[in-house]
Simulated assay, not measured.
Amino acid sequence: MDFMLEEELIDLMTFCLQNFDSIEISEKHKRITEIGHELYSDGGVDALENFFFVLKNRITQEIEKDPSPMRCLWNGLTSEWQY
Rank of each mutant, 00 (worst) to 15 (best):
M1A: 15
M1K: 06
L9S: 05
D11T: 03
L12H: 11
T14E: 06
F15N: 04
L17Q: 12
L17F: 12
Q18V: 07
N19C: 01
N19D: 02
F20W: 09
F20L: 10
D21F: 11
D21M: 03
E24K: 08
E24S: 07
I25G: 01
K28C: 15
K28L: 02
K28N: 07
H29C: 15
H29T: 09
K30P: 02
I32S: 05
E34Y: 10
E34H: 11
G36K: 05
G36H: 10
G36S: 06
E38R: 14
Y40I: 04
Y40N: 12
Y40C: 06
D42P: 00
D46T: 02
D46N: 14
A47T: 05
A47V: 07
L48V: 01
E49Q: 11
N50P: 00
N50F: 04
N50V: 09
F51T: 15
F51H: 13
F51V: 12
F52N: 13
F53S: 13
F53E: 09
K56V: 02
K56L: 03
K56G: 00
Q61W: 02
E62Y: 10
E62P: 09
I63F: 12
E64G: 03
K65D: 04
D66S: 11
D66E: 03
S68C: 01
P69S: 02
P69Q: 01
P69E: 09
M70P: 02
M70C: 03
M70S: 14
R71C: 10
L73W: 13
W74H: 01
W74F: 01
G76C: 08
G76T: 04
L77G: 01
L77T: 04
T78I: 02
E80T: 02
E80F: 00
W81G: 08
Q82V: 02
Q82C: 03
Y83E: 13
Y83T: 09
Y83I: 05
